[in-house]
Write a protein that binds this DNA or RNA. Structure first.
Lengths: 250, 250
DNA sequence: CGTGCCGTTGACGATATTCAAGTGCAGTGG
DNA sequence: CCACTGCACTTGAATATCGTCAACGGCACG
């Protein structure tokens, strides 16, 4: 079985794969694996991006910093996520990557991705994966610009929950959720104090049940509503009915 | 001369192109061109993304909306920018695109891009262009999450100025700047009232001179400093010295 | 048994929003 | 030609949201 390769699992939830394709994906994990302790940098802003990382276990975060130390998480990397399929072309990384929990990943030389590209289906699957990441970035921009603090936090929890679920990591509506409130603050552009207050409110509304590193969502529908959550990026073929407001001037 | 194709101009500022390559790029503008009046939608969220748009003249904005009408601009499209080189794979667009000023663009069938892909150099150039777009999205996330209102607005002005300059549209430090304060508010996640106040302050500090649709930047260095601007995404080979703060836990 | 980080809460203050009113300008139609 | 309309811009005053400062408890780690 290939269940130990979360990338295979993610792509297979998208489109059926042949045995050869699955084997090609699984071969990625055979190479050199690396482990990182929590809060350790996997790559740093300005580094030449020689390697492509595949997250096998644990969480990581992409982040950017301002000269005075302000720090913004620009995305989370979960098991099955590929780090820099794109960045290899660029001279230097524009952001850093840090382990959130203890992290195990496969370090891939760009050449190792070549065999995958020989399959039309895998090319499309990987392209879809990248576009999903790009759509997620736009969703974050929407969140940071327009959503209230509560909507932002609820939305982030929904996003991570659905991504984990798709990777098979949220059986029975519960999942490991190893980030701190500080991480969540850095991702939502809020202060840790305010994140704490909003989480308290979400708990009181019985919308989330998050203690320690365990998350349960007792009322997913309610949380999605509170978040104004839209999962367009989740599926290649989308919800049919989108809440598009009446035409009005931009 | 190929000066009428801003895409050629942009890519050439990145790497030298052969005559054949320039011709292939210029051929893109020979096909069907379309014009859009200001504030008209070029494409709408949920549409199947059949065509790739190349902006030839004027500005456009990508935007997303929330069910209650809140609206966030997630990026600007300037002359020489390619709309959906990626989105073609996806079932539906996750965002809309609207003309800001009056807009002229070339509508390309995906097949028309094939010839470009035969040149290794152009493939790299277009990949770089896409990565730049992705890096810009991360920069926006950083802005919305961490920068103050003044930094955000100054930063956006810097970004647009540099992009226009690279496309040859800011001779002598002045450029057409056809967006409204409302557009700027929707891009920075601020209210129009506050954008207005911040612009007043920037004017009083003699950092920007923006009236009507004309922008002049009397003190670019000062504006970049006020913006905490970092132009990492501009160049393939980057500034050597980046202001990376001392190592500290995420 | 300290030390340090995470989570929690209260009080206060800063930043940005909302509401409201008024100006100027461009386009429209009498 | 001249109201009339709508939109962009501007400004003030009141308000809300969220940040900062501060203090404390719990827990893990050395």
């Amino acid at each position: 079985m290939s269940a130990d390769n979360p990338l295979t699992r993610k792509l297979e939830s998208l489109m059926p794969l042949s045995a050869t394709e699955r084997a090609a994906l699984d071969r990625l994990t055979r190479g050199s694996q690396l482990r990182f302790a929590p809060r350790r940098d996997v790559a740093r802003e300005g580094d030449p991006p020689g390697l492509v990382w595949l997250v096998l276990e644990g969480w990581a975060a992409r982040y950017k910093t301002l000269p005075d130390g302000r720090r913004q998480i620009v995305g989370f990397l979960l098991p099955g996520d590929l780090c820099e399929p794109d960045g290899v072309e660029l001279g230097r990384l524009d952001h850093s990557i840090a382990a959130i929990s203890s992290l195990r990943c496969a370090a891939l030389a760009p050449l190792q991705l070549e065999p995958l590209m020989r399959s039309q289906k895998l090319r499309r699957a990987l392209a879809w994966d990248q576009m999903t990441a790009s759509a997620l970035q736009r969703e974050w921009i929407l969140s940071l610009g327009q959503r209230t603090a509560l909507e932002r936090i609820a939305n982030l929890i929904c996003e991570l929950y659905f991504r984990l679920d798709r990777a098979g990591l949220a059986p029975g509506g519960a999942c490991l959720f190893p980030i701190t409130q500080r991480d969540m603050a850095d991702a939502t552009g809020l202060s840790t104090v305010h994140v704490n207050r909003v989480l308290k409110s979400l708990r009181q509304q019985r919308l989330v049940d998050w203690q320690g590193r365990q998350l349960r969502i007792p009322n997913l529908g309610g949380l999605m509503t509170a978040a104004l959550f839209s999962a367009g990026w989740l599926h290649p073929g989308w919800e049919a009915s989108m809440p598009v407001p009446a035409a009005m001037p931009l």
